[in-house]
């Protein structure tokens, strides 16, 4: 799951990046509005955490530009300006959620999960396909009610495929979800993760669409 963090404060940005990485996200961190705007036009993020007081281009302007391109990426505003007026302005400019500084990292992560869940159109807390249940908050996967040990990247691949169950995800799309900017993408990384997932769960779970990518079939009726 790849997210963009836009925060001009070095220490705060560093902490958010570190925490989200621990939670298994691929995190890009931009420190000004213009870079954030550019990144948003090119990269497919699952969510954006946006500070409002940014140099060069304000957070609100970044948000307006994003929404003017009709991009539905969920946006969580993170700011020290927390009057009701500021919140209204932020939400009206197209934000999906609002968190005032100082905040709790756990709350930030929870809100981020909620945003991503809602954006995928799924209301349940747990993703379920067949006998596999995935808990994004706890970072846990159960197969036939038995916990399965997955590496963070394997978890991320499974999470992305289950979120998009019934749709084909290209290898490139999965790679983008797995790696932040500047991170070395290992060749065949996606193949390797899929391979392990099939072995730890069951081989038929992930279908290879040759020349296109991978998918997990949706449950009937879901």
């Amino acid at each position: 799951m790849r997210v963009l963090v836009v925060e001009d404060d070095a220490l705060l940005g560093d902490a958010i990046q570190a925490d989200l990485k621990q939670a298994g996200y691929a995190v890009d961190w931009m420190r000004d509005g213009v870079s954030a705007d550019q990144a948003l036009t090119t990269e497919p993020y699952a969510a954006v955490i946006l500070d409002l007081g940014l140099p060069r281009l304000s957070g609100l302007d970044v948000l307006r530009r994003l929404r003017s391109r009709s991009t539905p990426i969920p946006v969580l505003i993170l700011t020290a300006m927390d009057t009701v007026d500021d919140r209204i302005k932020g939400l009206d400019a197209g934000a999906d959620d609002y968190l005032a500084k100082p905040f709790d990292m756990g709350e930030l992560a929870a809100r981020l999960r909620a945003l991503i869940r809602r954006a995928s159109g799924k209301a349940e807390l747990l993703l379920q396909v067949g006998a596999i249940r995935l808990d994004p908050a706890a970072h846990r996967v159960l197969y036939r009610d038995q916990p399965v040990e997955l590496s963070p990247r394997e978890f991320a691949v499974l999470h992305a495929l289950m979120l998009n169950a019934g749709k084909v995800l290209s290898r490139a799309r999965l790679e983008e979800q797995l790696y932040a900017w500047g991170e070395e993408v290992e060749s065949n990384a996606v193949e390797v993760h899929v391979h392990y997932l099939r072995r730890k769960l069951y081989p038929e779970l992930i279908e290879t669409i040759r020349g296109v990518g991978y998918m997990i079939a949706a449950d009937k009726g879901s």
């Binding site: 404060d9 220490l11 705060l12 902490a15 621990q22 500084k101 100082p102 990292m105």
Partner: peptide
Amino acid sequence: HELRTPVAAIKAQAQVART
């Protein structure tokens, strides 16, 4: 506003350290 940001950073870093 200016004081909130460093406090937020300290808190966030401390929480990162804990986990």
